[in-house]
Amino acid sequence: MNRLNYFWLMLFVFVASCNTQKQASKFRFDTPEAGTLVKKGESVPLKLVFPGEITFDSVIYAVDGEILARKTDSAAVSLDTERAPFGNRTISAKLYHGGEEQVAYSNIVVVPPAPRRYGFKVLNQYPHDPEAYTQGLEFHQGILYESTGQEGRSSVRKVDYKTGKILKKVDLGPNSFGEGLTVVDDKVIQLTWREKVGFVYDKNTLTKTAEFNYGQSAEGWGLCYDGKRLIKSDGSSKLYFLNKDTFAEEGFIEVYSDKGPMDSLNELEYIDGKIYANVYTKDFIVIINPDSGAIEGEINLIGIYPDKQEVNNELNGIAYDREGKRLFITGKNWRTLYEIEQVAR
């Protein structure tokens, strides 16, 4: 090795050594590593790296700004996540010594346990209009109500589910892209995609009686009704709660699986206290706790529709017959409406 190469090698070793010493002397969290996924209920050790051999007066640990513990030693602190909300939780530690303050930060993402896994059993098959780009589906008093999408092709319709015959159809304007749909009392509520407006129809005649604007939610995707309020998706990991009479947004939850936030939530249905949601482009339905946002179940529907194409032919459409306890699903431009039973694995 010549002298020039040796010089550069020694310089590199010196700089790396300085950086290592600087990192070692920095006040920081050793655990948890930033972004660590933590199952709700698990205990997380908060362990700090202290600078050098300093003596200090105290360390104050906080989670999302709320004080967790005050310590006068370097022993690790335990964070119990049993009552922690799902999502990102910011962890901080303030070190006081010699009249000075140093602050270290980290974060964890609290997630629910892995969901229960379900398969499916097909109980019945019914004809479905292959020209219907299904965006919303609702079964009410023996009639299937359906919202279809695509500009220039969007509609709201009443359908005989047994035959697929369209009983009543109203086309949307050429610039409207139909999305989610639900039934509330004597009204049918339909969303549009990016127009940030929803439509209200008379349930019997499908005559439009009102319109409403969205609030903070960016777009209109799925819609369902839990008997007290509307629940709306916008393609993100959030589900918004709307007043059933004024349509004003009155809160939201963020939906989490055991792997983190779940976005692309699409068509919705409320079934026995849970929210069932299509996930855009995915061949499964997630089952969501409406109080916590936790995904508690997942129905794998891979292979149910043998003619499924890669584009614009996604699984999308969940309807529930509350009287008969029957679950129906279909997809965009599918020829078939399926009555299925979810089967625990």
Score class of each variant (00 low, 15 high):
E211C: 01
K208S: 00
G251R: 12
G220I: 02
N175L: 10
I285T: 09
Q190C: 02
E267Q: 12
K232P: 02
Q190E: 14
L181Y: 07
F284A: 01
K259G: 05
K232I: 00
T209H: 06
N289M: 04
D263C: 04
S217L: 08
E195D: 15
I287V: 13
Y280C: 08
Q190R: 11
E267C: 09
G222L: 04
S257H: 03
G215A: 13
D283W: 02
N204T: 14
E254S: 05
L242Y: 12
D272L: 12
S264H: 14
I189T: 08
T246P: 09
F247S: 04
D185N: 13
F199R: 13
D272V: 08
G235E: 00
E250P: 05
K187L: 00
G180F: 09
K187P: 01
N289T: 08
E179D: 10
D258W: 02
V279S: 02
F241R: 00
Y240P: 04
E267W: 10
T207N: 15
N175V: 11
F199W: 05
Y225H: 14
D226L: 05
F284T: 01
Y256C: 06
K259S: 11
F177V: 10
I275V: 15
F241P: 04
L191W: 00
T182D: 02
N175S: 14
D272C: 10
F252M: 13
Y240C: 02
S236H: 03
D234F: 01
D272K: 15
D226Y: 08
L265N: 06
T246W: 10
N204Y: 13
S217C: 06
D234T: 01
V188N: 01
F199K: 11
G215D: 14
V255P: 09
I231L: 11
E269S: 12
D245L: 12
I189D: 05
L242T: 04
I288E: 12
K228F: 12
D185R: 05
I288P: 06
N289F: 04
Y201M: 07
I189G: 07
G227R: 10
P290D: 15
K187T: 03
V197W: 10
K232F: 07
D272I: 03
G215K: 13
C224S: 10
T246L: 03
D272E: 15
T246G: 08
F177N: 07
D185F: 00
K196F: 08
M262S: 11
D186I: 03
T246I: 07
E211M: 12
F247R: 05
G222N: 09
N175M: 09
K244L: 05
I189W: 06
K203R: 15
S257M: 01
L206Q: 13
G198H: 00
A277M: 00
R229D: 14
K274E: 03
P290Q: 14
S176D: 12
G222C: 09
L265V: 05
L191R: 02
I275G: 08
E179H: 13
V286A: 05
V184Y: 08
Y240V: 04
N266W: 05
L191P: 02
Y256E: 06
G251I: 06
F212G: 09
K208H: 01
L206E: 11
